[in-house]
């Protein structure tokens, strides 16, 4: 029996060592893409796209206004950054969630003590996002861990993430492996999908409410002013927005931004293909400028905003 035991132990050791070596190679170039192809993990090689925003936020420059928000905000304002030297546009994606927007703005405020305004442009549905199994781990939780900003979140938020994803998946080394090894990412995300449990908010704006208020206070401490606006919303969602507006009134952020839901600018469904972003001719710069003027013309966001000349041609990608 001992002989068999040692044989099995040796066999297991060899297999484990070979697997560990294979994993090691999977994070190293030029083996990474080869191993991804071999193990059918090509879909797990993309970057989240969130980290550059945090790097940019930390860079010192002459900007004094931050424009941030979801991907609709990015579509509207990102191309205008080069024409507005006082504005830094760091809009990313709804998947970053409100805690991520808070951390991003915090990073910006720390490196820009002269900041006067922070413009937060978010679709109401973005503000209802929770730590789900679809995007929440990959784009929110992993970003917070990778940027070393998890510590600045509220304990209740960290607990919510731990409950949804497990403490193991919030460790820096785990996140590093999932980010850099397509094998680990495939295994990790699929494991999450099966064993994770999305965080259930007590009301639709639970997580966002906490961080909008925190951001508001943070801005005040830094001598800046926080502005919260809704992204333009397709007509399709009008009824849903009416329901959300009632819940919004119960939040703390409604006392700071009472007009957020009231000032939503609605557009026809034909202007969009995915009911979120503008498409076709409405994605052309000229139309986007018109949309910005119509949606935000009465707000400080529009004041002093230089839009791209009409003969330029920018399409949202």
């Amino acid at each position: 029996m001992k002989k068999l035991f040692w044989k099995c132990a040796l066999f297991c050791f060899i297999i484990t060592a070979l697997c560990a070596f294979f994993l090691f190679l999977s994070v190293k170039e030029p083996f990474r893409p080869m191993i991804a192809r071999l193990t059918s993990c090509e879909d797990f090689m993309d970057e989240s796209g969130m980290l550059p925003g945090f790097e940019k936020a930390g860079q010192q420059d002459q900007t004094t206004q931050l424009v941030t928000g979801d991907s609709i905000c990015r579509q509207l304002f990102a191309p205008l950054e080069q024409y507005n030297p006082e504005k830094r546009v760091l809009a990313t994606n709804a998947a970053l969630m409100m805690p991520g927007q808070y951390l991003l703005a915090r990073e910006y405020l720390q490196s820009h003590p002269e900041t006067t305004d922070v413009f937060l442009v978010m679709h109401p549905l973005t503000l209802t996002r929770t730590f789900d199994l679809e995007w929440g781990y990959r784009y929110a939780a992993m970003t917070y861990v990778e940027t070393d900003t998890l510590q600045y979140l509220d304990e209740s938020t960290r607990n919510a993430m731990e409950g949804a994803y497990g403490a193991f998946f919030l460790r820096k080394d785990t996140v590093w492996m999932i980010e850099n090894s397509p094998i680990c990412r495939k295994l990790g995300l699929n494991y999450m999908n099966t064993h994770g449990k999305p965080y259930e908010q007590s009301h639709s704006f639970e997580i966002a409410d906490l961080y909008v208020v925190r951001l508001y206070n943070l801005c005040r401490e830094n001598g800046a002013r926080l502005h919260l606006y809704s992204s333009p919303v397709a007509e399709y969602y009008r009824e849903e927005m009416a329901v959300l507006a009632v819940e919004y009134q119960e939040t703390r952020m409604s006392s700071l931004f009472p007009d957020y839901m009231e000032d939503i600018w609605y557009y026809p469904d034909e202007w969009t293909e995915d009911l979120s972003h503008f498409s076709g001719e409405y994605a052309q710069r000229e139309r986007l400028n018109e949309i910005i003027e119509q949606a935000y013309g009465q707000t400080p966001l529009w004041e002093g905003l230089d839009v791209v000349p009409s003969d330029a041609d920018y399409t949202y990608k």
Binding site: I15, C19, K186, N190
Partner: peptide, 10 residues
Amino acid sequence: ILLVTLREFG
């Protein structure tokens, strides 16, 4: 076996 399992995983 492990390789094919990984390919088919998920």
